[in-house]
């Protein structure tokens, strides 16, 4: 995967203002609900872990993401403030998170190599990893569904933009 552009990396380091965090939280929660609707087995697979709060710390993003599956919410918190209370925390760079989501990288391998670390409730982390892996999520397709945009076009854009950003933006294995 290509390395991240310096401009994007600089933008990622800027502390996001509160309205941006609020709008981002709203967008991510809507996206999460759309995903849960399109992949009903995903929440069921979480079982008793669905109510746990997981803090996703993508180290190259200016905000932390607090994820809860039941009731479903994804909230952004500024990195520089105290971290919100959570049951478990997963830390790695954004590329690792997205590669894992799209089935390009194995979570255990990222853990073995030190590219991903976890703390707190290990059951919640494992359940989330396994539920997402089984759901075969494609972020580009999920965004297309959320905004009712043509999936083929959005995924094609993701294929072009992904390598330039050094990020996996769509599920390459499912491309026609």
């Amino acid at each position: 995967m290509a390395s991240r552009s310096p401009l994007l990396a600089a933008l990622m380091r800027l502390p996001p203002p509160a309205p941006v965090l609020m709008a981002g939280s709203h967008l991510l929660t809507r996206l999460g609900r759309k995903m849960a609707g399109r992949h009903p087995g995903m929440i069921a697979r979480l079982g008793p872990e669905a109510g746990k709060r997981l803090l996703l710390d993508a180290t190259d993003l200016p905000a932390l993401i607090l994820l809860q599956a039941e009731p479903l919410s994804l909230r952004l918190f500024p990195r520089r403030a105290a971290a919100p209370p959570s049951d478990a925390q997963i830390t790695g760079n954004l590329a690792a998170f997205l590669a894992m989501l799209h089935g390009e990288s194995d979570g255990d391998a990222l853990f073995f190599s030190g590219e991903l670390s976890i703390s707190g409730d290990t059951s919640a982390v494992l359940a989330l990893r396994n539920a997402l892996d089984d759901a075969e999520i494609d972020l580009a397709a999920e965004f297309a569904a959320l905004f009712r945009a043509p999936e083929t076009v959005v995924r094609r854009l993701a294929v072009v933009a992904g390598p330039r950003l050094g990020l996996s933006l769509t599920r390459m294995e499912a491309l026609p």
Binding site: T91, F112, G114, S117, S119, T122, V125
Partner: peptide, 30 residues
């Protein structure tokens, strides 16, 4: 998994099973 816990320390990461420290991984190490 219900008995596994990880704690990030200044030196790296401690892994415990049932409260027993079983491994200390240096930061970024395998």
């Amino acid at each position: 998994a219900s008995h596994v816990s990880y704690e990030t320390t200044p030196e790296g990461q401690d892994a415990r099973l049932g409260g027993v420290l079983i491994h200390r991984t240096p930061a970024g190490g395998p």
